[in-house]
Amino acid sequence: MSRIVVKDVWQEYGDQVVLERISLTIEPRSFVALVGPSGCGKSTFLRLLLGDEKPTRGTITLDGAPLVAEPGPDRGVVFQRYSVFPHLTVLGNVLFGLEMRGSSTRIRLLGQQRRQAIETARAMIAAVGLLGSEDKYPAQLSGGMQQRLALAQALVMKPAVLLLDEPFGALDPGIRAEIHELMKTLWHETALTVVMVTHDMREAFTLATRVIAFERPRDRPEERERYGALLSQDISIWPPRIAGAAHPSSPDRDDPAFPLGQTRDDPVISEPPGA
């Protein structure tokens, strides 16, 4: 599986401390949302997980092995923009990873292998609801469809970890709700750990199993440079969402106020207050 352990990570750019003392364990199959105000370093943290940057101090391990300092096929990613290749069609974008995999010199697949890859890619395209648009270029797709394509492109590689950097931030609410449903389905059905950066609290609490907040406790102008952001909140969603299992309550409702006979680790309320 894919347990990510972050141990005492600091990230500094020159004199500017961006993140400090970040320690965190992300369990396999969880869906972690990183929230926080703009510029608090949550995207920086995601880039560390991605391997696009190296932490100044501290270690990050994936399944016990230190993270390689460059992006690789075990970690898929979807950005808010520029996630898909503008010069490739929908099919070409999803096919890309399959064509690159397992070789460092092959630039396209031929014959039987190519037919198989196209079949796999088509299944993935169908799973994100883009069937019928295989021959379109990204510029001809709406924003929501582009993000669906980006998801398909990443997931066709079957990564252990999927990293999302405000992937749905630029979409309008109706489209966003649809793609949330898709995201949930994909998370339930694929062996996937998801880490998502978002500034949308509702999105975080709708999708995640755990919401982690980044915050700069010292944010006066004279302090801003020498103090970075810390983890200020670590909230587990109740009742717990479990990958592959139906969630007992609808996402837009409050959590049940009465005990439901499930165990939880805070004091059980034996009677509803005021009874």
Partner: peptide, 17 residues
């Protein structure tokens, strides 16, 4: 966009690819 190069790397592409 740097994102494209990162994306290509997560799709297992080498420098040559």
């Amino acid at each position: 966009p740097h994102e494209q190069l990162v994306k290509a790397q997560t799709l297992d592409a080498s420098s040559f690819q």
